[in-house]
């Protein structure tokens, strides 16, 4: 069994009356890509800042690599790579200089550092931009620079706090592929995001947070298994007589039906041939069928079911 790289026990952080972290427990094992998923303000970044000993907390304990984490735990810090939510680079230094600077905080040997910097530049695909200053880089390239600065020293544990905010799809894919590659190369990853698709794509284990509490934890399959919903069928229909609706609602495994905006939505829990059964009913009544889709439950459904609200904020 893989050893715990990170162990957070009963962590409490208060900002006055507001409880930012409410007895949070987390255990992250070596080799995992661990996702912290939650809406804005759920406590993800606070957790990371406490984990890195930047932020004082009121109660609890944090262990990394089996040792107590503290601001002066330099032997722990040297094996951690951090990619902050806000891009943290010198505006006055170019791409190469920035990566070399951050790498120099960890590696003093010049030759070794140069090799690491070159590898980091290649890894994030900034070879053509090494002389560019951050202000001349696009949002996506800037995020890649931020990542290069965090991973150049080849850390064992990499913490990425919302690294894809305001990034174009191409750069986002590049970043996600890079994270998976870092994990394949042996790094343990902690990845925070409010983009459930990203977390589903790359994380091997996920903790869902809300209001400073961990509300669910497990693999994506385990999390989805927590929901009643296993399949959502959507059929384009202009008209739907009441008796047909009643017949569909009475089908096995169907627990919810709705017809709005010319779309029939059927939520099923379990069962293997739900779509066929729904289509058979519609065919029997000779109704004109439009577009037909089926959707598997998402982490948003999990979040919705547990908290009663959608995971993603409207502005996202």
């Amino acid at each position: 069994m893989a050893e715990n790289i990170v162990k957070i026990k009963s962590l409490v952080k208060r900002y006055g009356e507001l409880i930012a972290l409410d007895h949070l427990d987390l255990e992250i094992k070596q080799g995992e890509v661990f996702g912290l998923l939650g809406p804005n303000g759920s406590g993800k970044t606070t957790t990371i800042n406490c984990l890195l000993s930047l932020l004082a907390y009121d109660k609890g304990s944090i262990q990394i690599f089996g040792k107590e984490m503290s601001p002066t735990a330099y032997d722990i810090k040297k094996d951690i790579g951090v990619i902050m939510q806000n891009v943290a680079v010198f505006d006055e230094l170019n791409v190469f200089e920035n990566i070399d600077y951050f790498c120099g905080l960890y590696i003093t040997d010049k030759a070794e550092r140069k090799k690491c910097v070159e590898e980091a530049i290649q890894f994030v695909g900034l070879e053509d931009f090494r002389k560019y200053r951050p202000k001349k880089l696009s949002g996506g390239l800037l995020r890649r620079l931020n990542i290069a600065c965090g991973i150049a020293h080849k850390p064992k544990l990499i913490i990425l706090d919302e690294p894809t905010v305001a990034v174009d799809p191409q750069s986002r894919n590049k970043i996600l592929e890079g994270i998976e590659e870092l994990n394949r190369n042996g790094a343990t990853i902690i990845y925070t995001s409010h983009y459930m698709e990203e977390v589903e794509q790359i994380c091997t284990r996920i903790a869902i947070m809300d209001k400073g509490r961990k509300i669910a934890e497990g693999t994506k399959e385990e999390l989805k298994a927590m929901t009643k919903n296993t399949e959502t069928i959507k059929v384009g229909l202009h008209e739907l007589p009441d008796e047909v609706m009643k017949e569909i609602s009475a089908l096995p495994h169907v627990y919810s039906t709705d017809h709005t905006d010319s779309t029939l939505t059927v939520a099923c829990s379990g069962g293997r041939h739900n779509l066929i059964r729904v289509l058979e009913v519609l065919q029997k009544h000779e109704l004109h069928i439009g577009k037909v889709t089926t959707e598997q439950p998402t982490l948003n459904d999990v979040f919705l079911e547990i908290t009663g609200k959608a995971l993603r904020d409207k502005e996202d």
């Binding site: 601001p71 330099y74 810090k77 902050m84 806000n86 943290a88 951050f102 960890y106």
Partner: peptide, 8 residues
């Protein structure tokens, strides 16, 4: 903040 995470 980023420098605060480093071992320097």
């Amino acid at each position: 903040a980023r420098k605060g995470c480093s071992p320097t």
